[in-house]
Design a protein around this nucleic acid. Structure first.
Length: 223
DNA sequence: AAGCACGCGCGTGGAATGAG
DNA sequence: CTCATTCCACGCGCGTGCTT
């Protein structure tokens, strides 16, 4: 495993200057900012991630205003009441993506959000408070309690809302392979813990958010 | 005008395997 | 034995671009 110094220098070389590098790195929201996001916006983004999976993002994004309409602005209290016949009816609506499994995931994930509201006050509180040094734990929590959130969907959702996380994308996994941290796509708890440990080390060395380390790592493999 | 294959980019479920 | 994990096959809707 290379140290942060190597990673930083590699990226400076690639971008030519510190300013150019910084311009290409994401900036996560603060816990306070994450708390301010309302639960209907969390459900909207969560659902957008679910429907994007496997499809061209531009296709789904273009239909999103219609999704907001048919799902009552993603108000969890309303969405959770949508029954089977209601969802079957949506299967006829060409303004949205007619995928029953994904449509069913919306009220199910609304239920998860309501459950968390009850326990923590808001979904945003859960997201804001989860420590970045165990972000794989949050991925697991979301895929276990939510629906259609396996694979990279949980980390990608978190990236979309601004929660600091790394994402084991194709490029990031290639970089982790190159540095002999793991030798395949990390899916087991053990491999995920190993990867989390590597990021925690770079994080401690540099003070950089995980999302920036993740992108810098991705830049170290050719594409 | 209608039909089809393709690529997109994943997630799911069940079976098989492994750990304790 | 149980429970967790991994493996594998399969499936998903849409838009594009081609053929009929």
């Amino acid at each position: 495993m290379r140290d942060y110094k190597w990673l930083h220098e590699y990226c400076l070389n690639r971008f030519g200057s510190a300013a150019e590098l910084e311009a290409h790195l994401p900036v996560p929201l603060t816990p306070a900012q994450l708390r301010k996001i309302s639960d209907d916006r969390y459900l909207s983004t969560l659902s957008l991630r679910v429907f994007r999976a496997g499809l061209k993002h531009s296709v789904v994004d273009a239909k999103w205003p219609a999704f907001e309409q048919v799902f009552f602005g993603f108000d969890p209290e309303k969405v959770v009441l949508m029954g089977a016949e209601h969802l079957e009816r949506l299967m006829q609506d060409t303004r949205i993506i007619r995928h029953l499994g994904k449509l069913k995931s919306v009220p199910r994930n609304a239920q998860m959000i309501l459950d968390i509201e009850k326990e923590k006050g808001s979904f945003g509180a859960l997201i804001a408070d989860w420590p970045v040094t165990d972000i794989v734990g949050l991925w697991k929590y979301l895929s276990k309690h939510g629906h259609q959130l396996g694979g990279l969907s949980a980390p990608r959702f978190l990236r979309m809302v601004g929660k600091d996380t790394f994402v084991p994308s194709y490029d990031v996994v290639a970089a982790l392979n190159a540095q002999k941290i793991v030798d395949k796509v990390p899916t087991s708890l053990r491999d995920l813990a190993t990867v989390q440990g590597a990021f925690n080390q770079w994080h401690a060395e540099s003070g950089r958010p995980m999302c920036q380390l993740s992108m810098m790592l991705a830049y170290t493999v050719n594409h």
